[in-house]
Amino acid sequence: MRVPSRSPRSQPSPSVPYAAPARRRAPSRPPHLAAAAEPDLDAYRDAVADLLVEVNALAGAGSAKARQVLIDQRLREPAIAAVLDATAQGLVGARETLLLEMARYRPNARSSAIDLTALVRIYLLSRIDVMWWRDAATFRTDADVHHSPELVDLEWLRRRSLLRFRYTEQPRTIVGRGVRALRRRVLPDATPRTAGLLFRRARREVVALLNDVGREFAAAAPAGTGPLWVTSLVRSAEHQYRLRRLGYAAMVPSGHCLGWAVDVEMAWYRRFGARDALAELLLNRQRAGEINVVDEGQAWHVCLAPAATLRLRRAYEAEMGS
């Protein structure tokens, strides 16, 4: 199992255009992803890295027209077009969405897209996720996430010491938020600075992946390093739109809303001298074709590849006994 880019809460949405019927089980091997037809992802990532250099050079406020011309040209290059055309939106839809995201972009402290170049990187590299899982069903609402039989309760597993990673939940009350704020003031670096999970649920295959990475990281990191931390797991499309309204770089469609993507804390591990070790573990898994990774700064976005799901489902059943 094994790159990020080489480069540098409210009412339900009335309509989620990219959503498939809720609760439809995703095929373990999507039929459109036959090995012979799959785009060259190394070439795609290289082409995206080259594009980002040019986008960065045109980052000025007066370069909007030049950026649009650049995007029009570069997205039609074979290495990039092959991936975008294999998504449900297709090349044209992906282009229009990216241009709209760029036009609407405003930097803010909540967003992992610290600048326009980061926004383009996050969007384009996350398209690998939606290409892989374009036939998967979206969790449209919070209720879909809470009641889906495809997801397991992490707290049940944690209490039985069956998890090799950590997480925290979002405080649900004023008292809870106060306790969280006090703890951060008294012990500011004891845990990563994260809002926490709204949903403590995950696919079995994702649990197996995180347990594997957690074990490898514990063995590779310096003594005294904190355990693997997960800052985001499955999200509903409803919640994804909440995050967008709050200013987060929450892309749509998203692997999070399909249950196949997670965010893993990275920045916190610098204090242990362990960030590079975790990065290498994740990059190795990407090179092996098991995950897609997107560097989002404080956290890295990780999406499981369809080719790895069967082995990880078996690993979960062997480890958990079900």
Rank of each mutant, 00 (worst) to 15 (best):
R185S: 08
P21M: 14
D135E: 12
A202V: 01
A57H: 04
L197S: 01
A59F: 03
T194N: 13
T138Y: 13
R74V: 07
A137N: 05
D50E: 14
N56L: 08
A315Q: 11
D276F: 03
I71H: 10
L312K: 15
R245G: 12
M1G: 05
D50R: 09
W260H: 03
A82Y: 00
P227A: 12
S63F: 13
A26W: 08
G226Y: 04
E101F: 07
W260C: 00
T225L: 09
Q11H: 09
P253S: 06
F217A: 11
P171F: 00
A223N: 11
V186E: 12
T231I: 05
G273V: 07
N108D: 14
I71T: 01
A47I: 06
E77N: 06
R134G: 00
L243N: 01
Q68T: 15
Y167G: 14
V92L: 14
G297N: 05
R185L: 08
R201N: 01
R121Q: 12
D189P: 12
V55Y: 00
E280I: 12
V230T: 15
D153I: 14
T194G: 04
L52Y: 04
A82E: 02
G259D: 01
I291E: 06
A43F: 13
M320W: 11
R200M: 03
W132S: 02
V69Y: 02
L228N: 03
R164F: 10
